[in-house]
């Protein structure tokens, strides 16, 4: 398996504070990788660095063999990485359709874009029903679906999902994960940042565990799920709650 995304000893600093220290991470073509860890572990910093939003203090990011560490935010998506940001960040004043159109900003094929919007609508029927509504009138779950659909509009080779289940009701969370499973089955490569470890592990191939800005473990999803130590230390909440519901 070739590495599609290859992050080498990446560090991120905010002033004097190191949010991420020398983290290595690889995502292979066609792979689903989960990035786990408690609040403040540096997960979002890593995603922001990949997306070009914050500069790397050390290390670099390679995508499809090319160094993309110093590219501007707007160039990252042109290389094929689409990020669904934490908190969804849909364009509140734009309609659902307009959000999707803007998601395809890098594409020039108007017909293809129109077709993809239709395709998204068939995948997310709820969005079709709200096509002409402003995004701010959507519920949290609908906004999350819109954010994912918007990311897909650029036809990414790698989809980075930052906390897709954050703040959503359990039923909606299930829907989101079903959707992600569908995308996986279509062969899309994904890096999924999650606090909800159990759901993420049940669906990913491999996982990295971050804590206090450092990578404390990496292995297959099964290994992580079976490591009582890791679960007790870093991932306790997520597993415990789902264990109860199961």
């Amino acid at each position: 398996m070739t590495a599609l995304l290859d992050v080498r000893s990446a560090s991120v600093r905010y002033g004097a504070i190191a949010a991420l220290r020398n983290v290595d991470l690889v995502v292979g073509e066609g792979e689903i990788v989960a990035l786990l860890g408690p609040n403040g572990a540096g997960k979002t910093s890593l995603v922001s660095a990949i997306a070009g939003i914050v500069p790397l203090a050390t290390g670099d990011v390679h995508f499809d063999g090319a160094n993309i560490s110093n590219l501007a935010v707007e160039d990252i998506v042109r290389r094929g990485i689409s990020v669904t940001p934490e908190g969804r960040r849909v364009f509140a004043d734009l309609t659902v359709t307009e959000n999707l159109q803007l998601g395809a900003a890098i594409r020039a094929d108007r017909q293809g874009v129109a077709d993809d919007i239709e395709r998204n609508f068939s995948m997310f029927p709820i969005l079709k029903a709200r096509a002409r509504s402003e995004a701010k009138t959507l519920s949290g779950g609908e906004q999350q679906m819109l954010a994912i659909a918007r990311s897909l509009m650029s036809k990414p080779r790698l989809l980075v999902l930052d906390e897709p289940s954050l703040g959503l009701a359990p039923k909606i969370v299930d829907q989101i994960f079903e959707l992600m499973a569908k995308l996986r089955d279509e062969g899309l490569t994904m890096l999924v940042v999650e606090q909800n470890a159990a759901e993420a592990l049940s669906f990913a191939d491999r996982a990295y565990v971050l804590n206090s800005g450092e990578c404390v473990y990496s292995g297959t999803a099964a290994e992580v799920a079976n490591s009582d130590d890791l679960i007790a230390h870093y991932l306790g909440d997520g597993i415990a709650t789902t264990a109860l519901t199961d």
Binding site: D75, D93, E98, L102, G103, A105, R150, S154
Partner: peptide, 24 residues
């Protein structure tokens, strides 16, 4: 227009607009 949508969206959240690949 695409650029018009980007301008409206940028009024609220420029960073996310750039994440869509729109040049600031």
């Amino acid at each position: 227009t695409q650029i018009g949508l980007a301008m409206r969206a940028a009024a609220k959240d420029f960073v996310t607009v750039r994440m869509m690949g729109v040049r600031a």
